[in-house]
Amino acid sequence: MSNINCNVMNCAHNDSGVCYANKISINGKKSRTSTHTCCGSFLDAANYSNLTNNTEGNGPCSFVGCNVKTCTHNAGTVCALNNIAVTSSAPKANLYSETYCSSFKCK
């Protein structure tokens, strides 16, 4: 099971630094640096309230989909790491494009 540590504190899926979305998707097909990736599952809590109580699972996120073909951890369409970290390039993210997978490692 994957564990997503998240410091995007205004994400609706974030509960005390851990992601509680049912699954997340890391995007950025031809990224060369971590800041060119993004968490496609980011939802601003100001617009979407707190979703951590509305997930179908009974715990932290357990699936990391990944379409970043240039990442060494990409295993088809799934991240092969047990733990990843998602962060933001802004003090308060407004869009998913202001988030990124800091666990990204270019091939």
Score class of each variant (00 low, 15 high):
Met1Arg: 10
Ser2Asp: 08
Ser2His: 12
Asn3Val: 15
Asn3Lys: 15
Ile4Asn: 09
Cys6Ser: 09
Asn7Ile: 14
Asn7Asp: 14
Val8Trp: 06
Val8Gly: 13
Asn10Tyr: 04
Cys11Tyr: 01
Cys11Ile: 08
His13Lys: 03
Asn14Thr: 13
Asn14Glu: 15
Asp15Trp: 14
Ser16Cys: 02
Gly17Phe: 05
Gly17Asp: 09
Val18Tyr: 07
Val18Ala: 10
Cys19Arg: 01
Tyr20Thr: 14
Tyr20Leu: 12
Ala21Arg: 00
Ser25Glu: 05
Ile26His: 05
Ile26Lys: 11
Asn27Lys: 15
Gly28Arg: 01
Lys29Pro: 01
Lys30Ile: 10
Arg32Gly: 02
Arg32Ser: 06
Thr33Met: 04
Ser34Arg: 09
Thr35Val: 10
His36Asn: 12
His36Arg: 12
Thr37Arg: 03
Thr37Ala: 11
Thr37Phe: 10
Ser41Phe: 02
Ser41Met: 04
Ser41Gly: 08
Phe42Arg: 00
Phe42Gly: 05
Leu43Cys: 05
Leu43Asp: 04
Ala45Gln: 03
Ala46Gln: 11
Asn47Leu: 15
Asn47Ala: 14
Tyr48Gly: 09
Ser49Asn: 09
Asn50Asp: 06
Leu51Ala: 02
Thr52Asn: 10
Asn53Gly: 15
Asn54Lys: 04
Asn54Arg: 11
Asn54Pro: 00
Gly57Trp: 04
Asn58Gln: 01
Gly59Ala: 13
Pro60Gly: 07
Pro60Cys: 10
Cys61Met: 01
Ser62Asp: 07
Ser62Asn: 08
Ser62Gln: 08
Phe63Gly: 05
Phe63Ala: 08
Phe63Lys: 13
Gly65Glu: 08
Gly65Cys: 14
Gly65Leu: 14
Asn67Ser: 12
Asn67Lys: 06
Val68Leu: 00
Lys69Ser: 04
Cys71Lys: 06
His73Asp: 11
His73Glu: 08
Gly76Cys: 09
Gly76Tyr: 07
Gly76Trp: 11
Gly76Ser: 10
Thr77Arg: 01
Thr77Cys: 08
Val78Gly: 00
Val78Thr: 05
Val78Phe: 13
Val78Asp: 00
Cys79Phe: 02
Ala80Thr: 13
Ala80Val: 12
Leu81Ser: 10
Leu81Cys: 13
Asn83Cys: 13
Asn83Pro: 08
Ile84Tyr: 13
Ala85Lys: 05
Ala85Tyr: 01
Val86Gly: 14
Ser88Trp: 11
Ser88Leu: 12
Ser89Cys: 00
Pro91Tyr: 09
Pro91Phe: 06
Lys92Pro: 00
Ala93Met: 06
Tyr96Ile: 14
Tyr96Ala: 12
Tyr96Cys: 07
Ser97Trp: 13
Ser97Gly: 11
Ser97Glu: 12
Glu98Trp: 03
Glu98Thr: 02
Glu98Ile: 05
Thr99Ser: 09
Tyr100Gln: 04
Cys101Gln: 04
Ser102Gln: 10
Phe104Met: 09
Lys105Phe: 12
Lys105Leu: 15
Cys106Arg: 02
Lys107Cys: 07
Lys107His: 05
Lys107Ala: 07
